[in-house]
Computed example of a mutant assay.
Amino acid sequence: MSARIMSLHHMLKAVILFGFAMYIVQLVKTDNILYYIAPRMVDYVKWSAIGFYAIAVYQVYLGLRSFFGKVEECDCDHTPSRSIIKNTLIYGLFAAPLLLGALLPDASMGSNAAAKKGMNLNSASTVRNGGNPSLNATGTETAGGTATSESASAAGVGSQGALTDAQLKELFPYDKFTEHYAKFAMGLYKQDIIPVPEDMYIETLTSIDLYLDKFVGKKLELTGFVYRQEPMTDKQFVVGRFAIQCCSADGSPFGLLSEYANAKSLADDSWVKATGTIQKTKFNDMETLVLKIEKLEKAEPPKSQYVYPNASFGS
């Protein structure tokens, strides 16, 4: 292969590598990178941009040496194919995602992605029962175990204004799988209006769902996007969020089934801040939490529209 053709191959590689480096820089600069990866992964991606840039510079160096005929053949079979079609396919595998990233708008996942992945309305499903058959669906122990909410109430635990630590432990029994959620739920139970903060979104909803019977009648406030699916009524919708561990590929939608008199006026994927009372209902033959909304406000999407597991939860 001629020196100039070899030089062209090196330059094509350099252009693609420079493109990826600049694309990452642009995403980081605009914070749009949070549409694709969790904040804890951003630093690693930044370093990858530096790696792309360094390799691209080396490809330019090799391209210039090849152009001036200063590269000696090593007979180690690194020579590119002479087939235009094959080269187009190979370079296209790298150029296509770069072009798509540059041409398509950056946007967070919403109702369309939630419909495909399936909205999770029972956030405690991953920890409920946790290998302990003595725990029922509400997180309370059954026959022979710790007192249920009814017996605890009869024993004088029902008045939340004067609960001792011992009474709270009786009201929120736990095993090794649910201990952290139970202790967190005890703190939530003491609040008049339970906020669902960004940095504890998953843990807050999971704790409430796990001990749903104890929170019926409590006030809750949260922010999310509007999502609908069958067989919801005209007054029902979900206040939802996407939770991700690493990147948008592992995104999992979950939220709260909500009821609001003017729900029909809300556009899908619009963001709202809802305040209401926690109740229980049946949806798709499953018992689930429902938020009876009493106050609803339009909300601006947060800078990071996804929520993430809190690494310090339980520590």
Results as ranks from 00 to 15, higher is better:
Ser159Glu: 14
Leu266His: 13
Lys273His: 14
Gln229Glu: 10
Val45Gln: 00
Tyr58Leu: 14
Gly161Tyr: 09
Leu93Asn: 08
Arg65Ala: 14
Val226Leu: 05
Thr164His: 11
Val57Tyr: 03
Gly139Asn: 09
Ser151Met: 08
Ala95Gln: 01
Ser48Pro: 07
Ser270Glu: 05
Phe94Pro: 06
Arg65Cys: 14
Gly255Leu: 04
Ser66Leu: 04
Ala107Gln: 15
Ser7Trp: 07
Met1Asn: 07
Tyr260Cys: 01
His180Asn: 10
Arg228Phe: 10
Ile85Trp: 14
Val45Gly: 01
Lys218Phe: 02
Ala56Trp: 14
Lys190Gln: 15
Leu93Ala: 11
Leu34His: 06
Ser207Arg: 04
Asn122Asp: 06
Ile293Ala: 01
Lys13Met: 12
Ala137Ile: 15
Val239Phe: 00
Ala143Trp: 14
Ala143Gly: 13
Asn120Phe: 03
Pro302Phe: 02
Gly217Val: 08
Leu163Phe: 05
Gln245Cys: 08
His78Gly: 09
Lys219Thr: 02
Lys169Met: 09
Ser134Ile: 01
Pro302Asn: 00
Ser207Ile: 10
Gly187Lys: 11
Lys219Ser: 10
Met11Asn: 00
Lys214Asn: 13
Glu221His: 08
Met6Tyr: 08
Leu121Phe: 08
Met109Ala: 13
Glu230Met: 11
Asp165Phe: 10
Val127Lys: 09
Phe177Gln: 10
Asn310Trp: 03
Val272His: 01
Phe68Gly: 02
Met286Phe: 04
Asn310Ala: 02
Asn284Cys: 02
Ile244Thr: 12
Arg82Pro: 05
Tyr306Gln: 04
Gly224Tyr: 03
Tyr227Arg: 12
Thr288Tyr: 06
Lys303Tyr: 12
Leu121Asn: 08
Met232Thr: 03
Phe177Asp: 13
Ser125Tyr: 03
Phe20Cys: 11
Lys29Met: 08
Ser108Pro: 04
Ala107Met: 15
Tyr36Leu: 11
Ser270Gln: 15
Arg241Glu: 01
Ser149Met: 01
Glu73Pro: 02
Cys76Thr: 07
Thr233Lys: 12
Lys116Val: 13
His78Ile: 06
Asn87Gly: 08
Pro39Ile: 01
Ala155His: 08
Met6Gln: 04
Ala263Cys: 06
Lys282Met: 13
Leu210His: 05
Ser248Asp: 03
Tyr306Asp: 08
Ile24Trp: 03
Val71His: 05
